[in-house]
Amino acid sequence: MRFNPLTKLVIIVLATFVFLANVSLMYEIVFIVFLGILLLINGDPYAAMIYWLIFSLLLLLSVTVFKNIHDTWSIIGSFLIIGGRRILPTIMAATFAIKHTHVSEWMRSLQRMHVPFDIILPLVVVFRFFPTLTDNLKNIIKALQFRGLISSKLALIVHPIRAIEYVLIPMISSADTVASELSSVVITRGISHQGIHTSIFGDHLRFIDYIVITSSIFFIAGRWLID
């Protein structure tokens, strides 16, 4: 089932709120279950299972191994575990937001929210260009190995300054070509058109979106009423 990008944004804000607010353990568990159900509906049952498993593990560790906090190691360990449990909802929300939403859908939603064109266009370029960039990175490293300039990827970590020269300079140089290509794409696909755009993705909220948004409001209200 597809969710509206607006709903996904609401969930991210809600997760951030839960991250910032002090919530009780019970609230945390309910919230994690809620996010997991959203992931299930969104079509990522495996992600939901894995996150639930991680959460249960962290919870189990904090009540068994790190029950008594006395020396330095248990302080560091328990800090990481409690902190990790705390940040898990935002990571789940991010997974929920990124999966199964097309870049065009995000663009459509941002336009509806009156985000300026000067910000939407670079953002779309980042989304569109980032996969290409990681491909380029792999190819550049391959080429460096082929020419014997580095022995392995480890060599780049050992000499970070040389790594800038070898990896970033080719990328920046090739950015010129890519920029002219993408500018043409932007113009031919009409993204630069200043008027009102239409989209093949329907942008109305559906029943499921209303349910999720309403329950988000309940979650925020529940923070003060229950906790």
Binding site: D118, L121, P122, L123, V124, V125, V126, F129, F130, L133, T134, L137, L168, M171, I172, A175, V178, A179, S180, L182, S183, V186, I187, S192
Partner: peptide, 22 residues
């Protein structure tokens, strides 16, 4: 003028992507 503005915005996007990669 609009084209050159678009090219600048595309440049910003590309450099942001490279920056993000770093």
């Amino acid at each position: 003028r609009q084209q050159s503005k678009i090219k600048e915005l595309v440049y910003i996007g590309i450099y942001t992507a490279i920056y993000f990669l770093v």
